[in-house]
Amino acid sequence: MNGTKRHERILERLNRDGKVDVAGLSEELGISGVTIRRDLEYLAQAGVLRRTRGGAVSMMMLGEGLPYAMREIEVAETKQLLAAAVAKLVRNGEAVALDSGTTCVEIARVLVGTRLTVMPFSVQAIGALFGKSNINLITPGGSVRHDEGSITGPLAEASLRSVRFDTAIISPCGASPEDGVMAHDLHDAAVKRAIIDASRRTILVADSSKFSRSAMAAVCPLESIDILVTDAAVPAQVVERLSAGGVEVVVV
């Protein structure tokens, strides 16, 4: 198992249990304790966890999420599947507002094969779409969060008040039937709400791990979205509740 896969599995355990131990990880992954300790040191330097005697505990609280570099490697294969499923839902000629986050950057890479007008809300997605002849790229105003590359703030919200989109593609930091769609950053949550308000339909793209996470800022109720794109490990009660509320659920 390579380093990226190991880090991904460690992140999964941290998200689920809030803590990990070297002996348990070594047995579960079939990796030596020395390698596990080296992985934990790497993740500690990235600010994801705090080392403890024989293991580590998560440093992630409701007001903060995983660093961008860590999220890029988290469930990477699943994000590619989700991106391909979202691309199939978008038709040639649509005007699309594309949220920030690592999943939406993956979606941007797939959307380059479709004739679209796109307003992306991260510098990474702008880079992925720039120079593609079939993409009419519109950049929003706003401030760039240096740690995330997301575009937020009053100018970003003002940009959205003057346009309308066929489709909003939103990626949450956390989600649940009780608390709805959530984000860690208040300004990011405000932009997400403005994107939804400016769009005819909303596609929420969230891998199943997002349904075990909470965040501080509320975006919207889950039932207010039109389509959820997720993976097969999504909790059954989420699918049942959304389907009963008229939300289309696409499982990859």
Rank of each mutant, 00 (worst) to 15 (best):
228 L>T: 07
175 A>T: 02
173 C>R: 15
236 A>T: 10
172 P>R: 01
161 R>H: 14
186 L>P: 14
183 A>E: 07
182 M>W: 13
246 G>E: 02
242 L>N: 00
202 T>Y: 04
181 V>F: 04
225 I>S: 05
213 R>W: 02
154 P>C: 06
191 V>S: 02
163 V>A: 05
152 T>M: 05
186 L>R: 14
150 S>L: 04
180 G>I: 00
216 M>N: 07
191 V>L: 12
185 D>H: 04
219 V>R: 03
164 R>H: 11
213 R>L: 11
229 V>R: 08
218 A>C: 08
201 R>Q: 02
220 C>Q: 13
152 T>F: 11
202 T>E: 03
189 A>D: 07
219 V>I: 08
229 V>G: 06
165 F>I: 09
203 I>S: 04
215 A>K: 02
211 F>P: 00
242 L>G: 05
153 G>T: 10
161 R>T: 11
198 A>H: 01
212 S>D: 15
161 R>F: 14
184 H>E: 13
184 H>C: 10
157 E>G: 07
194 A>I: 10
186 L>D: 15
225 I>E: 07
224 S>E: 07
195 I>G: 00
181 V>M: 01
180 G>P: 05
222 L>E: 03
246 G>R: 06
193 R>E: 06
227 I>L: 03
210 K>H: 03
175 A>D: 08
161 R>P: 12
209 S>H: 09
220 C>V: 15
228 L>I: 02
209 S>K: 07
150 S>Y: 06
163 V>G: 06
161 R>G: 12
215 A>F: 08
173 C>H: 13
183 A>N: 04
150 S>K: 03
181 V>T: 07
237 Q>T: 12
174 G>Q: 09
183 A>D: 06
220 C>S: 11
172 P>V: 11
213 R>G: 08
185 D>W: 08
176 S>L: 01
163 V>L: 14
225 I>C: 01
151 I>D: 05
184 H>R: 11
176 S>P: 02
217 A>I: 00
155 L>D: 13
225 I>L: 02
204 L>R: 01
214 S>L: 13
197 D>P: 01
171 S>G: 13
198 A>P: 00
238 V>P: 04
163 V>F: 12
159 S>K: 03
224 S>V: 06
173 C>K: 10
151 I>C: 01
201 R>V: 14
149 G>E: 07
207 D>G: 09
190 A>S: 11
168 A>P: 14
191 V>N: 03
223 E>L: 12
208 S>A: 09
185 D>T: 05
228 L>F: 03
202 T>N: 03
149 G>C: 03
157 E>I: 13
205 V>K: 04
193 R>L: 12
236 A>Q: 12
211 F>I: 02
167 T>P: 02
198 A>E: 01
173 C>N: 15
227 I>K: 09
177 P>M: 12
237 Q>P: 06
213 R>S: 05
236 A>K: 14
165 F>M: 12
216 M>T: 14
227 I>A: 09
151 I>H: 08
200 R>V: 11
158 A>D: 10
235 P>L: 00
241 R>W: 10
216 M>K: 14
214 S>Y: 11
186 L>H: 14
221 P>M: 03
200 R>N: 13
164 R>F: 14
199 S>R: 03
236 A>F: 10
193 R>M: 07
242 L>K: 00
196 I>W: 07
225 I>A: 07
172 P>S: 00
234 V>H: 04
219 V>D: 11
218 A>T: 15
154 P>Y: 03
237 Q>A: 14
152 T>W: 11
158 A>Q: 13
200 R>Y: 09
169 I>N: 01
177 P>R: 13
222 L>D: 05
